[in-house]
């Protein structure tokens, strides 16, 4: 659980984002217990107050839930989980589009290239 934080985004949001990625990747499963705030601070090398804030944010977004006297768990709410997937996807595509925009390429050509590259990447990993 090591994260390279950047210095310009709030650390607590970077932690939230890290959790979202882990959920979407399936590293964290719905209903899985997550570390305590203190443990998280320790492992991620962040201020315990920041870890606390990240958990609060995740609770507000419904990503995690806490029953009394139990460790917090990843939500099992399929709708929330779906939203997370969507959110990350849209965000990534947005970023891609912005950077590709400057090259001014026709969208069909771009899509073909994307398909080709995506396939090559999957093959390489397999």
């Amino acid at each position: 659980m090591t994260v390279n934080f950047n210095n310009r985004d709030p650390v607590y949001l970077q932690i939230v984002r890290y959790f979202k990625e882990q959920i979407v990747n399936g590293v964290l499963e719905p209903g899985e217990e997550i570390p305590s705030r203190r443990e998280l601070a320790n492992r991620m090398k962040v201020n315990p107050n920041t870890a606390q804030r990240a958990y609060k944010e995740m609770e507000e977004q419904g990503l995690i839930y806490t029953e009394k006297n139990h460790p917090s768990k990843i939500t099992t709410d399929q709708q929330v989980l779906g939203n997370v997937r969507n959110e990350l996807l849209v965000e990534a595509v947005d970023m891609f589009v912005t950077s590709v925009r400057s090259i001014n390429v026709p969208v069909e050509e771009l899509l073909d290239l994307v398909k080709e590259k995506y396939k090559a990447n999957v093959d390489k990993e397999a």
């Binding site: 210095n7 310009r8 985004d9 709030p10 650390v11 607590y12």
Partner: peptide, 14 residues
């Protein structure tokens, strides 16, 4: 430190 990052998008060093 967190507010500077969140509100102004600046690192402490910035």
């Amino acid at each position: 430190a967190e507010e500077a990052r969140e509100i102004e998008g600046k690192s402490v060093i910035d």
